[in-house]
């Protein structure tokens, strides 16, 4: 691919690193207005909602596959299993499903 590829890679690396690094190092221990820090504390749970849906529904062409995966994962997590077992259990259940 030649040197163009490596320049592109450098650009991609910077474009990825900057959004990761700037807030973490600049906001470093600064006191933010309560409403702002309240919103920031909400971010993790909102992000998770947005990351899960609708993507999980479309992991395979068969929509039922993703919906089944979501239901199983929610069930396993709800009964209190550790994250690792939620992941392994859901994969195992879907593997069985796609075999039949």
């Amino acid at each position: 691919m030649g040197s163009t590829y490596w320049w592109m890679l450098l650009g991609m690396a910077i474009a990825t690193y900057v959004p990761r690094m700037i807030p973490l190092t600049i906001l470093d221990g600064k006191e933010l207005p309560p409403i702002v820090s309240g919103v920031l504390r909400n971010i993790p749970f909102a992000v998770l909602g947005a990351l899960i849906f609708p993507a999980i529904i479309h992991i395979q062409d068969d929509i039922l596959f993703g919906i089944l995966g979501a239901v199983i994962a929610f069930a396993l997590a709800f009964i209190g299993l550790d994250v690792m077992f939620v992941v392994i259990g859901t994969i195992a259940a879907l593997a069985v499903y796609s075999l039949f």
Binding site: L51, I56, I72, V87
Partner: peptide
């Protein structure tokens, strides 16, 4: 196919 659910199952397990 089954492993394509892994990351989403993890997000659910965390949430």
């Amino acid at each position: 196919q089954a492993m394509s659910v892994a990351l989403y199952a993890m997000f659910i397990g965390l949430l």
